[in-house]
Nucleic acid binder design. Structure first.
Length: 465
RNA sequence: GUCCCUGUCGUCUAGAGGCCCAGGACCCCACCCUUUCAAGGUGGCGACACGGGUUCGAAUCCCGUCAGGGACGCCA
């Protein structure tokens, strides 16, 4: 059992590609097979090193590690030439001397007639060779009969050979083309399951015809599984304008790889009513038979929700490391003797959707507020609030044990003594310490901040009118 | 234009003829909990594209219509 993920490095690896890679990977893991990574870079014009980097880095970040590869098609040209030579010699392929202009007019005429534009095979049927023109090579597609694709997700799909034409397998500059390379590679790499995007369903009959030319009658061909497309949040095809960003952008924004994977798995696949899956569960439960057939739009809110769900159960030390990265990106360098990152994670994870959000909400632990949020200050740092701050500072100064519990009891005691609710004390403190009206529970917040920093911020806010 | 694919709440989906006057999740709203914000809990809003069949019975099967997407390239 062998699957492959075969991206072309002509654009950034985005969610759609990642979902395909995930399903290939899951299927291989589930069945104890191999997952092969192959970079389809035969389009020299548009392939970039940057795109290759994103593919490799992105997959590594997600843990979608290939068992074999990456293989690069541009390094397999000798093999492609060999096959083309064989086919030319055995009459499975032929040279075509038609110029681009000639082909353009042919297509235009066909379209004007309402026909499907397709090469009419004139060079196959005795059109004389043109001197001084370097020819392309075309594959002789069967003219009759039908090609049946038994697709694992779409079921039986039938194409008529007369809808197809003799496709170019080698350009006039000698470079082989995509549909041909795919066939040679899938054959050479002994791929048993071709899992890829829906947009390739139409290519499959051509590839099947060429594959049969390779394996001969009765030879084994892979199982095909065409996944439904992923659309942007607005339902439009994924593109730069419609939600297509590099997968690495999700890392920068502070998403957990397992959350992204969980989200992507649920696009086009489901297991009853279950929404939350660990990686292990996905491997155990995933099956290509359960993949559905219709395209789906990405929903950023649901991704964010799932990310939080995964943060809630993730190892806090690991999250602390990720939080550190986010803080650093914001220009904050957490000191060893400063606020404890694990403690911050513990109280912030249930109030953050991403680690980036967590970092932004935690900035005040590292930097005293420069200004107080206007509305919050007006409400809580009025003379009455400032008096409360002084009282709290006095109580905390004497505290023997600087722990959340001790702080909690001290504040409760003070509130009881003053005959007010805890909120009357907590809110002014929150504003004094964080600069705004929102923070984790005040006891945990102060415990993390430390006594001297807490007292400094309290007195500053109390005296700063 | 031709061929192919697809069509259940706004979105992701469950549903393989009766369990469905359609279930879950995100979003939104309300309430509970509560020191803020959250998290959590409870409840609410909300869909079988349309029209014909088949059947005692259809979201599920068949046909048509409409709508969306894809392919038709010396791109992948």
């Amino acid at each position: 059992m062998r699957t492959r993920f075969a991206p072309s490095p002509t654009g950034l690896l985005h969610i759609g590609g990642v979902r395909t890679a995930l399903f290939c990977w899951l299927y291989a893991r589930r069945h104890g097979g191999a997952f092969v990574l192959r970079v389809e870079d035969t389009d020299r014009e548009r392939s970039t090193d940057e795109a290759v980097r994103v593919i490799l880095e992105g997959m590594a970040w997600l843990g979608l590690n290939p068992d074999e590869g990456p293989f690069y098609q541009t390094r397999r040209y000798d093999r492609y030439r060999e096959v083309i030579g064989d086919w030319l010699a055995s009459g499975k392929a032929y040279h075509c001397y038609c110029s681009k202009e000639e082909l353009d007019t042919m297509r235009a005429e066909q379209q004007a007639r309402g026909d499907k534009p397709r090469y009419d095979g004139r060079c196959r049927h005795g059109k004389p060779k043109v001197e001084g023109v370097s020819p392309v090579v075309r594959f002789k597609n069967p003219g009759e009969g039908e090609v049946v694709v038994n697709d694992a997700v779409h079921g039986r799909v039938v194409f008529q050979n007369k809808e197809l034409d003799d496709l170019i397998i080698q350009r006039s500059d000698g470079n082989p083309t995509y549909n041909f390379c795919v066939v040679v590679d899938d054959y050479d790499m002994a791929i048993t399951h071709v899992i890829r995007g829906d947009d390739h369903l139409n290519n499959t009959p051509r590839q099947l015809n060429m594959l049969r030319a390779m394996v001969g009658e009765g030879g084994a061909v892979p199982v095909y599984a065409h996944l439904p497309m992923i659309l942007g949040p607005d339902g439009a095809k994924l593109s730069k304008r419609h939600g297509a960003v590099s997968v690495l952008e999700y890392e920068r924004e502070g998403f957990l790889p397992e959350a992204l994977l969980n989200y992507l798995a649920r696009l086009g696949w489901s297991h009853g009513d279950q929404e939350f899956f660990t990686l292990e569960e996905m491997v155990e439960l995933f099956d290509i038979e359960d993949v559905n057939t219709s395209a789906s739009a990405i929903n950023p809110d649901k991704l964010a929700w799932l990310n939080q769900q995964h943060m809630l159960v993730a190892d806090e030390t690991r999250l602390a490391d990720m939080l550190r990265v986010q803080l650093t990106a914001m220009g904050i360098t957490p000191a060893l003797e400063g606020p404890n990152l694990v403690a911050i994670v513990a109280c912030q994870k249930e109030r953050s959707k991403t680690l980036r959000e967590m970092a932004m909400a935690s900035r005040f632990f590292f930097e005293a507020p420069q200004v107080y949020e206007e509305k919050a200050a007006k409400k809580h740092l009025a003379p009455e609030g400032q008096a409360a701050l002084l009282a709290v500072a006095a109580a905390l100064e004497l505290l023997a044990d600087w722990s959340p519990l001790a702080i909690h009891e001290a504040l409760n005691g003070l509130a009881a003594a003053q005959g007010v609710g805890l909120g009357k004390l907590a809110q002014p403190v929150r504003v004094a310490v964080s600069g705004g009206g929102v923070s984790p529970p005040i006891d945990a917040t102060l415990a993390i901040l430390g006594r001297s920093e807490t007292l400094a911020r309290l007195t500053r806010a109390a005296t700063n009118a």
